[in-house]
Simulated scan of single mutants.
Amino acid sequence: MAAKRINWRLYLTEGERSIVFALCGIAFFGAIVAFIVVNQLGGQSQIVRPLTTYDYWIICSGALGAPAGAFLARNWFGHPGGAGVMKACVGIIVTSFLSSIIAGTLALPFYGTMFGPFSLIVTMVASPMLALIWAAMLLGAHLLVAVYRRERETIFVPKRARRRAVA
């Protein structure tokens, strides 16, 4: 008997792929921000050092908490025009707050819920370049979510109107 080759493919539209890409990018930068937070809270400013199991858990908490916060604040992102950019700016604050609460709770239940947002604010004030990179990442996510929103809005437009809009 010949073994059947199972070919599993994940069929995603362009908009869905942009959402996945945005969440993966947010998770990556969330892990970086969590690493920097744990480095600064530990009183060590060196990047190259042996990491403990707790450090790894904090990094994983940041990688899980950041996209979870972005998912909860998803209605702030992807809207067109200047009003959409203003909503995205508010969404950056909401996402940062929610992400720090979730990551802090995962890292250290109860105390982390309180000190997660505080630690994030202290880290962002101490490192404005990190705050700028985090905001740029979330603005990039705003642009990626806009692809998804445009795609979803075309579902409800008749084909004739779509052809006229393209031509």
Rank of each mutant, 00 (worst) to 15 (best):
A161C: 02
V122Y: 09
G112S: 05
I101G: 03
T105Y: 03
R162G: 01
G62K: 01
M114G: 00
A167L: 15
V122G: 00
A107E: 07
W76V: 05
A167G: 12
S45V: 09
I58T: 11
L108F: 08
A66D: 04
S45T: 14
A165R: 15
Y148G: 07
R150Q: 13
C60V: 15
V125A: 06
M86D: 06
M124T: 05
G30M: 05
G116H: 03
F29W: 09
T154S: 13
W57D: 11
L106V: 07
A88V: 07
F118E: 10
D55T: 06
F71Q: 01
E151F: 04
V33Y: 00
I133A: 03
A73H: 04
S18P: 05
Y56L: 14
I133H: 01
Q40S: 12
V157L: 05
A68D: 01
G82L: 15
G42F: 00
F115G: 04
T13R: 07
T123Q: 10
A136D: 01
W57K: 11
G15V: 04
G25E: 07
L130G: 02
F110Y: 13
Y54I: 13
T52E: 11
G104I: 03
G82D: 09
E16M: 09
A131W: 04
A103Q: 06
R149N: 10
E16Y: 00
A2P: 13
G78M: 06
L64H: 06
G65M: 04
T105D: 01
Y56D: 11
V125C: 06
M86H: 09
P80C: 11
K159E: 14
R17P: 03
G112V: 04
R150Y: 08
T123N: 08
E151I: 06
I26K: 03
A63D: 04
F29G: 00
F110T: 15
D55L: 03
A3K: 12
Y54Q: 13
R5C: 08
W76Y: 14
R152G: 08
A165C: 04
I32A: 03
R49T: 09
V85R: 10
G84V: 09
C89F: 10
A167Q: 12
G69C: 07
K4T: 11
V37S: 06
G30C: 00
L139M: 14
A165Q: 14
L12D: 02
V125K: 13
E14I: 12
R17T: 12
L143T: 10
R164T: 12
A146H: 09
I58A: 14
V90W: 07
